[in-house]
Amino acid sequence: MTLGLVSDTHGLVDAKLLPLFRGCARVVHAGDVVKPDILDLLADVAPLTVVRGNNDHGPAFAHLPETALVEAGALRILVVHDLGPRERPKPPARALLPRERPEIVIHGHSHHPGAAVVDGRLYVNPGSAGPRRFRLPRCAALLSIRGRRAEVTFYDLEGDAAHRHGDPFVATL
């Protein structure tokens, strides 16, 4: 099973996202959508799970939850926009982690793409697919799950087509 991961689009619909996510079982947007038409475009590619980010204001985003749980095969995923430090998560994630016991946490907000295992849990930030900020890459990710094995591959969105950004991150949970 493969999930498309995106965050912090900040109103930009990058044309490279749609072909990258085509064939995914689900697309997960970790907040800061900013323009609601982005959700319609992503939902046309695959079923969509999205959480509200700190820049998602107004009636178009009022229905979005702050957190979401996704079942992906044998693994449970918690989605939250602003996790804070992985070692000391902010509320509401802090309360949900011990109660829901997700094996994977997908988060955004910092615009820093990355994956790490902390205390046996995989944390993934797909980075920002929105307008370039600072010196951070514009990117998204694919999360492939087979049993309890998770593989995260980041894709740089600069240039004519999305291309792999570094080696995949693999974890057995």
Rank of each mutant, 00 (worst) to 15 (best):
F21D: 03
L48R: 14
L64I: 15
L64Y: 04
N55D: 14
T49N: 03
V34K: 06
D14I: 15
L69T: 03
K35L: 10
L69W: 02
V70K: 08
L39S: 06
H63Q: 07
A25H: 08
V70N: 03
G23P: 05
L39V: 10
L18T: 02
V28L: 07
P19R: 06
A25Y: 01
R22Y: 15
A43M: 04
N54A: 12
P36G: 00
H57E: 09
V51M: 15
R52N: 12
P59Y: 13
F61W: 02
F21H: 06
T49F: 01
G31W: 08
N54L: 04
H10N: 10
H10R: 06
L42G: 00
A46S: 14
D56A: 06
V33K: 06
A43S: 15
R52L: 01
R22V: 04
N54E: 09
V50K: 02
G58I: 05
G23H: 07
P36K: 03
A72Y: 02
L39K: 10
L12H: 04
V45G: 03
K16M: 12
P59T: 12
V45S: 00
F61V: 05
F61H: 06
G58R: 00
L12I: 02
G53Y: 01
V45N: 12
I38G: 13
H29T: 04
A25W: 00
N55P: 01
E66N: 07
A74S: 11
R26K: 11
V27L: 10
L12C: 03
P36I: 09
A60K: 07
T67L: 02
G23Y: 12
D14R: 11
G31D: 06
R22M: 05
C24A: 14
L17D: 10
L39D: 00
D32A: 07
G23K: 14
V51P: 01
H57P: 08
H29L: 15
E66C: 12
K16N: 10
G11M: 11
L69C: 13
L42Y: 12
E71G: 06
H29E: 13
N54C: 08
G11E: 08
L42E: 08
E66R: 09
T49M: 11
H29W: 11
D32Q: 04
G53Q: 09
T9R: 05
L18W: 06
R26Q: 15
K35E: 14
V45Y: 00
A68C: 05
G31L: 01
